[in-house]
Design a protein around this nucleic acid. Structure first.
Lengths: 329, 329
DNA sequence: TACAAAAGTGGTAACGATACAATATTCGGC
DNA sequence: GCCGAATATTGTATCGTTACCACTTTTGTA
């Protein structure tokens, strides 16, 4: 592969001149510019990113750390991140840590090794050791934290207020006459879904309803989990069910179909995430949309903002989602 | 950020010794090893990938070029690629070119700039200029081509034999008494789907049925496209419909539901891809599965094989898919 | 004990680019 | 045509690492 030196030789100038032209300097004679450009074209010259990065630090690379194995739920978020990053000349590394703190640390170090400019950090719960490392590297590498797992850590944060949104779902159901609103939680170790549950509790309170632990179940984030939790809840005859994720809601819907329960006449169901499957279920699932593509885009924008002003105070960006009413309410 | 020189100073040895230890040399006294490791830990030292890459070429990075904007259809493939790459210590860049040759070239150059070790090249049709460039860089960067778009180019290829699989679907339907098997093609410019259509034609021939152009429609790869094509086809009263992709089949299914046509009693439908939605449609969609995760894994393995033996003759790996019979046949 | 081989360590030159200072060339005004 | 200013070009050091060779120390064997 040709180097800047080869280009200089072919064009009959010094490599310093070539370097200047590459970085768009004005102080070059038109004929020199032409000769150099011809040489670049002839040799198919492409600057070596590694050599560049060694002097001028910026690698135009962003890393995205995800807690779970790469799955459909991250698609929109990743699309948003990719698009915005590429638009700004950045490439991205996507790493899934599989909920494993050690692996997360391994990837964080790998990102330092690769001198990425920034990290979009998505995790499912606090890991003090990793947070300490993250804060240490935040001096050299821009860090944006997704969700509010690390609140109070003075790191830029981008998140959707899942609590507020869940509260609004409770209020909507209440205003439409529901009195026994059940909830299917995710695993408590997930901060993001724990927040949604808090919103549920708060919503009940503001509606003058009391929180009944018998109307709350926990489950794995799968259809199967949703089905099982619903089976237990159904004995308490709720008139509505809100779930922490759409898959749980689809499980609930599946249970109702099997039992011959009419949705929404006998019971209303509201999910969370607005995954594409929502419009394929019958009846179509009402849910809360987070607009993940926008979230990803915002995260990248904040990262770039941080890179251009490293000293500025950390910000917390809270995006709005919306309640999407389809056929299960 | 600390450098190898800092480590050497703290440990009281030369940077050459530190470098040796990092690369796992045996010829080091245990106490020296210990002192250096302590220094590395103390300083949180992580080698600079750029400086390393400048001497020893390998960057442990693979690029994946996709023709379409990052979407659900690529999820499994990407998962396979990611998993296998990470397992082998590689990171991946994913680039979507949006069916734009210029953009594809831009990304190819970017990958050369970043000195990736290999490129997994996925495109939708031949672009001579880009192919020429690809072949030129294939001397320095390992290239694996997905699908058979570039057949005859002496580049490693990994693909699923969509033609053969479609043929087997035709035979299955024929053996079950279907006589008027219609087909919904994708856009002809896609080589992968064109191959599937050839399989359809060949299947008919081998079953002793003749290809009737009135039983073939083209459409965009969307549900809407499938619905419209089916509306036209339905006038010819086919007893089965095979489609180039699942979304087209879901569109067909949607049309049948709206028209009150019973599936599979009145007409059988077979899609292609086995996207997750297949098990959500009612009746559940029969389809052809490509096992994309396996495809991705195979591509990475071939890339690594090429890296270790650059001179070996190019290979073509053809993976098997399978006909998945659900409720539409 | 002697002496070659092996083990352990260090010095220096790359890798390919950019930054900075230094030098060469052109230009404008008198 | 001369001189200073502006423009254009170049030489050299440097980034952090590894490769290679040279050197010192230890080990093993006759």
């Amino acid at each position: 592969m040709s180097t800047i030196y080869d280009v200089a030789k072919v064009a009959g100038v010094s490599k310093t001149t070539v370097s200047k032209i590459l970085s768009g300097s004005k102080n070059v004679r038109p004929q020199t510019l032409e000769r150099v450009n011809a040489a670049i074209k002839k040799l198919d010259y492409v600057p070596n990113c590694f050599a560049q990065g060694m002097r001028s630090a910026a690698t135009k690379t962003i890393a995205v750390l995800l807690p779970e194995q790469y799955n459909y739920g991250y698609m929109e978020l990743l699309t948003g991140i990719e698009k915005c990053a590429n638009r700004n000349g950045y490439m991205t590394f996507v790493c899934s840590t599989g909920r494993d703190g050690e692996r997360e640390m391994k990837y964080l170090k790998e990102m330092v090794r690769r001198r990425v400019d920034g990290v979009i950090y998505f995790t499912y719960r606090r890991n003090e050791k990793n947070i300490a490392y993250l804060k240490r590297i935040a001096g050299n590498i821009a860090v944006v934290v997704m969700d509010n797992v690390l609140r109070g850590e003075k790191l830029d944060t981008v998140r959707v207020n899942g609590g507020e949104l869940t509260k609004s779902a409770v209020k909507y159901l209440c205003n439409n006459g529901c009195k026994k609103i059940a909830y299917i939680k995710g695993l408590d170790e997930y901060d993001a879904t724990a927040e949604r549950f808090s919103g549920y509790a708060l919503g009940l309170k503001e509606c003058g309803l009391s929180l009944d632990n018998l109307l709350v179940e926990s489950a794995e984030f799968t259809m199967e989990g949703g089905r099982n939790a619903t089976r237990l809840l159904w004995e308490k005859k709720p008139d509505a069910i809100i779930t922490a994720t759409d898959m749980l809601a689809l499980g609930a819907l599946d249970f109702m179909e099997a039992e011959g329960v009419r949705v929404p006449q006998d019971v209303s169901i509201i999910g969370f995430d607005n995954i594409p499957l929502c419009i394929w279920s019958r009846p179509r699932l009402s849910t809360i949309s987070q607009n993940q593509e926008k979230v990803g885009e915002t995260a990248v924008q904040q990262l770039l903002a941080r890179l251009s002003e490293p000293k500025k105070e950390a910000v917390e960006l809270i995006l709005n989602g919306e309640l999407i009413l389809r056929e299960t309410t």
